[in-house]
Design a protein around this nucleic acid. Structure first.
Lengths: 229, 229
DNA sequence: ACAAAAGTGTTGGAACTACACCCATGC
DNA sequence: GCATGGGTGTAGTTCCAACACTTTTGT
């Protein structure tokens, strides 16, 4: 019999990377019961001496080089009593983002899977993955979170592809460039990329002005008066 | 000795209400160790047959009439191993909002406290309260979350006061009205309020068009093309 | 020259801020 | 009338989407 009211607490990471046509999520294949053979999110038990963010970073480090993870944020708690077989488990899920040019080494049991064609997932990990993608989509609209999807330096076409993969619809390169530069999110590097084999004008290269999350679309009426920053 | 890796899981509610000059939070005064006499957020143990949202509503119902709580959303997990005395506890915090005209009956040990002058709080509950206010401020900018702060029917001046209390700075009534009506968030009721004792034109009364959270300020470049909704 | 890829100019419209002005009431 | 609180008109600005057009490359 378990101690009353004490619950196993897990942390989970939805690690997303934008492939040309779809977001991909990092999953590993379970070798043991329950749900043997199904694909699960990286994660594990919350340790006695760490908070949830430290814990998720520790568990993630077993699957992927943390240096490749450009952004981590808390997503949500999943606590349905029937989210998995007994004994009960509560999980704090995180969203992690890996730039599209990173291809970190992963263990044999671990692989990237297209989010639009997930394999059979363990527990509620499919639902958690979709929640992570939803969060990313929302934040692309009003923050500079794209920095965590893009290489250090990139062309507007590349960036357009990343936004399109995340959002699931076409994005105008022209307007993406103008909006993001107007807001100071993007800055030109001055250099250009070599054209492809079929020619074309060389693309100007940009970088994100900041590599930390920032809200870029505040509701101006509600900004403090007087002093601009 | 405790079962290894099993942790007590609490839920907590930051319940905010806008008073004329400051946000207020609902706190109760602890009668037992630890932290006897300090003020704590409503909440308690996660039960065996409920998820965290059901749990926080159950605990909250002991302090306040749930019918008065217009909006509840998950805030964040607080899990620092040293956030309180042993044994360790992890808490999922929620943000709850009560309209300014509601004055629900509360138990003797429970009272509203100005957030800008919190009493000595138990554990990390002061920090959690401030996180809740931060979330509210951010969401006022790009959602219709004001519905949960305002009475069913209100004048623009009243609404301006609620926004100003939440944000901590002056808000223009003129522009607040125009932006919110343009976005379809506010609709006029057609009736007016009686003027105060010193006269003045009677204020037109409005209501929120929806009483559920909705994002009102999407980044248009990133909207799906073709079909408008 | 031509195709391909990238970037710029431009136009019409919508959204926003600030400020002046007008309206309806109590005294 | 006058003070008070509330609402509207409007000008100037910025922001934005769409689309045509130009630039720079490879073949």
């Amino acid at each position: 019999m378990e101690a009353e009211g004490l619950i196993a607490h897990d942390v989970l990471a939805v690690v997303l990377r934008m492939a040309p046509s779809s977001p991909e999520v990092l999953l590993w294949q379970r070798a043991r019961e329950p749900h043997t053979g199904r694909w699960a999110l990286p994660g594990g038990r919350l340790g006695a001496t760490e908070d949830v963010e430290a814990s998720v970073r520790r568990h993630l480090a077993e699957k992927v080089d943390l240096g490749e993870v450009a952004h981590v944020e808390q997503l949500s708690v999943f606590s349905d009593p029937h989210r998995g077989p007994a004994p009960r488990r509560v999980a704090t899920a995180f969203l992690g983002l890996v730039p599209s040019d990173a291809d970190p080494a992963v263990p044999d049991d671990t692989a990237w899977h297209r989010v639009d064609a997930l394999p059979e997932t363990a527990f509620d990990h499919g639902e958690i993955t979709r929640a992570g993608l939803e969060r990313l989509r929302a934040k692309l609209s009003y923050t500079n979170i794209g920095f965590a999807l893009a290489p250090e330096v990139f062309s507007i076409s590349e960036l357009r592809g990343l936004y399109a993969a995340a959002l699931g619809h076409r994005v105008s390169a022209t307007n993406l460039q103008r909006v993001l530069t107007r807001r100071g999110v993007l800055v030109p590097t001055g250099s250009t990329a070599a054209p492809g084999p079929s020619g074309g004008r060389p693309a100007a290269l940009f970088r994100f002005s900041e590599r930390h999350l920032r809200v870029t679309d505040p509701f101006a009426t509600l900004r403090p008066p007087e002093r601009d920053c």
